[in-house]
Structure formats: C-alpha cells, structure tokens
C-alpha cells in the first residue's frame, strides 16, 4: 500500500498585490455544480441548509457554505470545509444534478481599495457597489479566461477559475493590482 496521496494546489506559492490590492490563493474548498429545476429548489435548500438564490447575480451564505446563482437552473455551491456536497444534494431526494468540481476550480481572493480596479483590468462588468453589491456573483470573462466573480465585501472579491487558467488569471490579477496601485 502506497502512501496516501496528498493535494498539490494549483496556486501553491502564489502571492502578489500592490499598495492597494492583496492577492491570496483561497484555501482548498468543497465545490458543487448544482443543477435543478425550480420545483426542487426548496428540498435542496433544506438539505444544504442554505437558501438557493433564484434572482440573477445573487448569492446566499450560511456559515462556511455559499450558494452562487450562475444561471436559472445552475448554482455554484462552495463550502470552505471538506464536505460531501454531492451526498448532501443527493439526500434531498429530488431531481437534480450534482457534480463535484472541488478540484476543477481554484480561487484567488482579491482584497483592498484597488480590488475592483484590479479585476476591471480584464473584466468588463460594472463593479460599483450599486451594480455589483456585496454578495453579488456572476460568471463572466477576465481577459481571455472565464471566471466566476463573487463579491464577499465592499473591497473583497473571490475569483473562481478552472485550475489550468489559474496562472493566467492570477498573473492578470497581479498586473491589474499593480496598475491599481498607481
């Protein structure tokens, strides 16, 4: 029996930022791509102990667990602890599709006064608090990569991307952060 395999994180060793922006790789998290029709939302919310938002660009948070609306029948569920989200979703006993994407995605935390400017280096969305308030989330583009953007505070964002895009996304965030420092 070989030694238990351990995780090698896609953004190990990455750090960056500027006078106005701090960039940190997010800790490993449990992630679920959850798909369901409206009639299943209630049961899934009960099972997940988290309301599933049904309005565009909104999210819900309960403890370490977050549900991000990505589309009319699609949520990204993130739990900052190691949890069997697929199992929990299945326990709801309703028609749904739950796929574990904990390792597909990785995330970078972007924090500081210049956070939105750094993200606007590659993201065309309006990140003012009016248009993208705390708790807002959206799948969008960041330069030539696709990301999920989640505002966790007035000057704090979580940027989720597929793991192989992480060097590009973190690199462009670092460039944006550098510019936001000037």
């Amino acid at each position: 029996m070989a030694d238990l395999a351990t995780r090698t994180l896609p953004l190990r060793g990455f750090h960056g930022g500027s006078a106005t922006v701090r960039l940190t790789p997010a800790a490993p998290a449990s992630r679920l791509s959850l798909r369901a029709k409206p009639d299943a939302v209630g049961a899934l919310a009960t099972a997940l102990q988290l309301s599933l938002p049904t309005r565009p660009k909104t999210s819900a948070t309960s403890g370490t667990r977050h549900a991000l609306w990505l589309g009319p029948d699609e949520w990204l569920v993130i739990d900052e602890t190691e949890t069997d989200l697929v199992g929990i979703a299945a326990s709801a006993g309703v028609l749904q599709s739950a796929t574990d994407i904990s390792h597909r995605n990785t995330a970078i935390l972007v924090e500081g006064q210049g956070a939105s400017a750094a993200i606007n280096a590659g993201c065309p969305q309006d990140l003012s608090l009016k248009a993208f308030p705390v708790g807002a989330c959206s799948r969008t583009v960041f330069g030539k990569a696709e990301v999920v953007l989640y505002r966790t505070g007035e000057t704090a964002f979580r940027v989720e991307c597929w793991r192989s895009f992480a060097p590009y996304v973190s690199g462009l965030l670092a460039a944006g952060a550098q510019d936001a420092g000037h």
């Binding site: 565009p56 660009k57 589309g71 009319p72 065309p124 969305q125 959206s138 969008t140 583009v141």
Partner: peptide, 18 residues
C-alpha cells in the same frame, strides 16, 4: 463592443460574454 441584454440575467452585459 456591444451591450446585449440577457433575458435570463435581466441586464445588459458586454458582448465579450456572448
């Protein structure tokens, strides 16, 4: 670059997302 109203997101977004 156009703005396109997504009937599901209920707002205008950049053409880059479409």
């Amino acid at each position: 670059m156009l703005l396109i109203h997504c009937p599901y997101c209920e707002e205008q977004r950049s053409e880059l997302e479409f």
